[in-house]
């Protein structure tokens, strides 16, 4: 990994079309400004990892499909009961 030292306000250029500027340094936190062509998506890595983990957990299985179908059925029954109560 290339490591460069930068001061506040200084910039790094990648490939002549991405600019990364250190806008503020406060204790152990730095604020970074990124200017990139709009086809580049920029996200925080830990958020991306959390979304990956969530997607993996969400993969539908026969169990989850069964749970969903049972809920749909039970709700339809409840709706029917509500209708009966309304009629009464």
């Amino acid at each position: 990994m290339l490591i460069l030292s930068r001061k506040r306000g200084q910039t790094i250029v990648i490939n002549q079309n991405i600019e990364i500027v250190i806008t503020a340094i406060e204790g152990d936190q730095v604020k970074i400004g990124i200017q990139a062509p709009r086809e580049y998506s920029i996200v925080r890595k830990e958020v991306m990892e959390d979304v990956k983990a969530s997607n993996r957990k969400a993969i539908s299985t026969s169990t989850s499909m069964k749970d969903l179908k049972e809920w749909v059925q039970s709700r339809k029954k409840t709706d029917k009961n509500k209708n009966i109560i309304r009629k009464l």
Partner: peptide, 9 residues
């Protein structure tokens, strides 16, 4: 949006 099915539903 993606749903994660949990127990109970």
């Amino acid at each position: 949006t993606i749903v994660t099915i949990n127990q109970p539903f």
